[in-house]
Amino acid sequence: MNISSPIKLAVIGRGLIGSAAARHLSKMGHEVALIGPDEPADFSQHSGVFGSHYDEGRITRVYDPQPFWRQMNRAAISRYSEIAAEGGVEFYREAGALHIGDRETTDVASVGQACADEGIACEAYQDGALAQRFPFLKSTVGMLGYFEPRNAGYISPRRLVRAQTIAAERTGARVINEPALGISENGSGVTIRTRSGSVEAERVLVAAGGHTQSLLGRSLGFTVYARTVALFRLGAAEVQRLAGMPSMRCLGPKGDNPYILPPIPYPDGQSWLKLGGDPVDRRLDSEADIKNWFRSGGSVDVADRLQGQILDRIRDLKFEERRVMPCMTTFGDTGLPSIGPLSKRVTVAFGCYGKSAKCSDELGRLGGMALLGEVRAELAPLTGAQDPGAISAIAP
């Protein structure tokens, strides 16, 4: 595959942020190519890149401890219906989100304060009232909960990516179903090498998640961490019993603070309850580390711990099967994503802190605007932003 004439703009990464950036840029009338492979059919046999959107449930809500992420959440959630209409794919369910913790040992009260300060719709419950409102909870003694009933619940990241991609194609974007193996910049543009040939572009946005730094051949101050999630298949009776269950954030010390999704239908026709919350951060320092992690299938030890936590929190839970899945996330020192230029022709948009699925549309929009020259200074990459040199890297 060789494209004879350069494309104006290319986005590398067909995940949550990349697909959003392509939609926004294409909708603005720009010529865009969105480059990245489909979801792997079999993790254990896959030799290419991996993404972090391969499931059906991520918590969405407006509240976040940090004002920046609350701003991102509001902006993205306000466009959910627009994205669904443009892409023809529904991906959001307003099931609400419950933030819950021991009122003596956690900062759960700060959730209510932030919601009050910012006008986020929120209901407070504790002890018996909490048990009455959410009867599936195993214990509520000494517990305090804040419930966001609106603009909260869960999204399917897989379906959101599909909606963004279709919407981008409908406004003229070209989707190239190939992994980017390397990029090199010269005076007139950027060459993107794929398995089938090369793509020439005038400017490129790299939104490749945990693969971003290795693709560029430089560190931008972010660390990639392995994550494990556990899925529990429920029978029809349990699905019906938990029909009113919202998404949940359990506040507590690291390793005892799982996030929990209610039963969600998956492509296999079954309903699965999902939770995550790794007790220890496991670094993935190279492309080989990332690929080996995904091929491993995740940590059974973490899944065992998560199983204990779900049984401690959901009253009389009965599940028929457990499934373990690997994932990854990126963390930096500022608490903010990296969205801005590395050179005259190469821009990045990545750094999710485990928070970006719900607000990926706004992060993608900011990435697209940065590619066009409109950059929020606080998000500019910590290293390389002033580097006038060209990018030249080949991913291992």
Rank of each mutant, 00 (worst) to 15 (best):
I12T: 04
G18E: 02
S19M: 06
R23G: 00
M28L: 15
H30Y: 15
I35Q: 11
I35Y: 04
P37T: 01
D42F: 09
F43E: 09
S44I: 01
S47T: 13
Y54N: 12
Y54F: 14
G57S: 14
P65F: 07
P67C: 04
P67Y: 09
F68R: 05
Q71V: 12
M72L: 14
M72D: 00
N73W: 02
S81E: 13
G87M: 00
G88H: 05
Y92P: 00
E94I: 00
A97Y: 02
L98I: 11
H99T: 05
H99G: 00
I100T: 03
G101D: 02
T105K: 12
T106G: 00
Q113F: 13
C115N: 04
D117S: 10
E118W: 11
A129C: 06
M143L: 06
R150A: 13
N151P: 00
P157C: 02
V161G: 07
R162M: 10
I166W: 01
T171A: 09
T171L: 08
S184P: 04
G187F: 08
T191A: 13
S198T: 15
E200I: 03
E200G: 05
A201V: 07
F222T: 03
R227S: 12
R227L: 13
F232H: 08
R233G: 10
A236D: 15
A237Q: 14
P246H: 14
S247Y: 01
C250Y: 11
G252Q: 03
Y259I: 10
L261S: 09
L261G: 04
Q270K: 14
G277Y: 04
D281H: 07
R282T: 14
R283A: 14
S286W: 10
I290P: 04
N292D: 15
W293V: 01
R295L: 03
L311E: 15
D312K: 03
L317K: 07
L317H: 07
F319V: 02
V324E: 02
M325N: 00
T329C: 02
T334A: 09
G335P: 01
K344F: 08
Y353A: 07
K355L: 12
G364F: 05
G367V: 06
A370M: 08
L372V: 09
E374A: 12
R376Y: 03
R376Q: 14
L379T: 06
T383C: 08
T383L: 12
A385L: 03
G389T: 14
A390G: 05
P396G: 11
